[in-house]
Simulated assay, not measured.
Amino acid sequence: MVADRSLMKGAVYGVCAGLCWGVIFLGAELTPGLSGLQLAVLRFLCYGAISAVLLMRRWRRVCTPLTLEDWKSLFWLSLIGNLIYYSLVGTGVQWVGIATTSLIVGLIPVLVTLAGRHDANAVPLRKLFPSLCCAMGGVVLISWHALSSDDGLNTLTNLFGILCAFGALVTWSWFAVSNARRLIKVTRVSSHDWALLTGIMTGAQSLLLAVPVLGFQGSQHGLAEWLDFLWVAGGVALLSSVVGGACWNQASRLLPLALSGQVLVIETLAALVFGFLWEHRLPDGHELSAIALLLTGVVWCLNVHRAPQRSSTA
């Protein structure tokens, strides 16, 4: 019974994280004047500033239990899972659209599940094969749909966007697995404080990139434009990075790795809903088919894992 409550609580935290993260795809559409890297730097500067303010009074107490290995982990998690990942997401959205980017990134639950197949409560790969085929089929379909254009230049643009989306898929899958395993070892730091420490580290990295990435673009945009960019970046930082990051860290501690990635399908669904609302349209036939295949794969994968979990709980 205690294990069931823990799983339910972890699932709720994971769903909340997915809903918060759905807006990151929309953020790139709201800032067409910035590149993916520029938006990432601006967002994580805001994330770092918010995190520093929230952690300022407790800085010494929170940092005391951390080891050099923990700080190294924070550095790489921040660089790969935040800066590089969101630069790729933003570029993918601007080049190939929210629907295609979010559906490709929607394979994260599958990759995380594969990474955790040797952990506790994992199931054999042969039982996961049908769900993997469904999820991959959805991604192949949406990628083919994006590339099936008569315009050669547009096809190259879409191809570049798809490659960025796959890069985002790989980088955040690595982050999800590495962060979950590090949180198991960092027991004296809360999930919320770990998210704030990640924010401070990412903010410091963004500060080093601010001048070369943003400084030389200052004259290209007026004050009103920069204020709009700052509002969007600050909103995404607060909702997705601070709130979403804390929820995800808590979910990572409560759920087995094989299950934690499955709730991220909520991020894909939220991103698709936000994207279609922003574009004032309904999904076309290819997009609906891809969504159905991806959801079928993820739900199938989740159901396969539920039986071993129930047996372990019993």
Score class of each variant (00 low, 15 high):
Leu255Thr: 09
Ser143Cys: 09
Val189Cys: 14
Asp284Tyr: 08
Ser131Arg: 02
Leu277Lys: 03
Arg117Thr: 01
Val123His: 01
Gln220Met: 15
Leu223Met: 10
Gly297Trp: 08
Tyr47Ser: 12
Arg43Ser: 03
Glu69Asn: 14
Pro130Thr: 03
Leu209Ile: 04
Leu111Gly: 03
Gly81Ala: 12
Pro283Tyr: 09
Leu259Ser: 15
Val211Tyr: 14
Leu19Met: 10
Cys46Ser: 15
Asp284Met: 01
Trp248Leu: 12
Gly203Asn: 11
Gly234Lys: 09
Val140Gly: 11
Ala233Lys: 03
Cys134Ser: 08
Gly152Phe: 08
Gly203Gln: 09
Val53Leu: 15
Ser87Met: 05
Val243Asp: 10
Ser311Gly: 10
Glu69Arg: 14
Ile142Ala: 00
Ser6Leu: 14
His305Tyr: 05
Val89Gly: 00
Ala3Thr: 04
Trp144Ala: 15
Ala176Cys: 10
Val139Tyr: 01
Leu282Arg: 07
Ala165Phe: 13
Gln262Ile: 03
Ala11Val: 08
Gly218Leu: 15
Leu55Thr: 11
Leu257Asn: 07
Ser191Gly: 14
Ala292Gly: 10
His221Phe: 04
Leu83Phe: 05
Leu125Thr: 05
Leu30Pro: 04
Val211Gly: 00
Met56Ala: 13
Ser191Tyr: 03
Ala314Asn: 13
Ser240Glu: 03
Ala122Ser: 13
Ser252Tyr: 07
Leu196Arg: 06
Leu209Cys: 10
Leu125Pro: 02
Leu34Val: 06
Asn249Leu: 10
Val170Asp: 05
Leu156Met: 12
